[in-house]
Amino acid sequence: MNDYGTRIPPTGRSSGERFKRKAGDLAAGAAGAAMIVIVLVAAMWAIEIVDYVVPGDLDGYGIRSWNIEGLGGIFLAPFLHAGFGHLMANSLPLLILGFLAALRGLGKFLLASLIIIVVSGLGVWFTSSPMVVTVGASGLIFGYFGFVLARGLFDRRILDIVIGLGVAAAYYSIIWGVLPGEAGISWQGHLFGLIGGIIAAWVLRRKRRAVETY
């Protein structure tokens, strides 16, 4: 009990032991984050190679706006790209922002990705011109950007706040991508991806421990 009557249970560990445990957890989280994001991007490259080699056009399975059958493309569009140039442009920011988004664990990362994909995909489906097909991982990129920024604010962890500030400084210019601009670029996917990332950070925020006072 402290001087203000707040009962705080002892941890039973020294500060050195707690530091080592946290360092170990962070190292394990970083290794897992790197692995899952590399696998994710590798899968996108494998799909694009298949799309290039086999007859037909897999891009037709993307989000087809205002078409009921096109709703299924919400879950496929992030893995499809309009050529290797499109995929190359998305790969590096996806690796970096995806890695930072995945640092807090695979489960949260997968749930955050699902929320971003659904919010971004539905936004594209509702707001794009009818029957336009949209593909690409840009919604995920903007989603991870929003997730990493908002996570520090909602969780109030020093490390997450520092990471968020670093991401904001390094990638602040991409925020213009949420505005209508170049033809053929889905600003809707960018905007709703960003919104989806912020929603994911709120939904998956760290729960506060109850503290007894008297």
Rank of each mutant, 00 (worst) to 15 (best):
N2K: 01
G5K: 00
T6V: 14
T11F: 02
T11L: 10
F19V: 12
R21F: 10
K22A: 15
K22E: 15
A31L: 14
A31R: 13
G32M: 08
V37R: 01
V39Q: 13
L40H: 15
L40E: 14
A43R: 10
Y52W: 14
Y52H: 13
V54A: 15
D57E: 12
D59A: 12
D59I: 05
E69G: 14
G70F: 04
G83T: 10
F84N: 04
H86D: 15
L87V: 13
M88H: 12
S91R: 11
L94P: 11
I96S: 07
I96M: 09
I96W: 04
G98I: 03
F99Y: 10
A102C: 00
A102K: 00
L106Q: 10
K108E: 14
S113P: 04
S113T: 14
I117S: 08
M131F: 15
V132W: 07
V133Y: 00
T134D: 13
A137L: 11
F142A: 03
L149S: 06
A150Y: 00
R151D: 08
G152C: 02
I158K: 09
I161G: 07
V162D: 02
G164N: 05
L165N: 01
Y172F: 15
I174E: 01
L179E: 06
L179I: 12
P180T: 04
P180W: 06
G184V: 07
G184L: 14
G184D: 05
G184F: 11
W187C: 05
F192H: 08
A201P: 05
V203I: 09
R206C: 00
K207Q: 11
V211P: 00
V211C: 01
E212Q: 06
T213I: 11
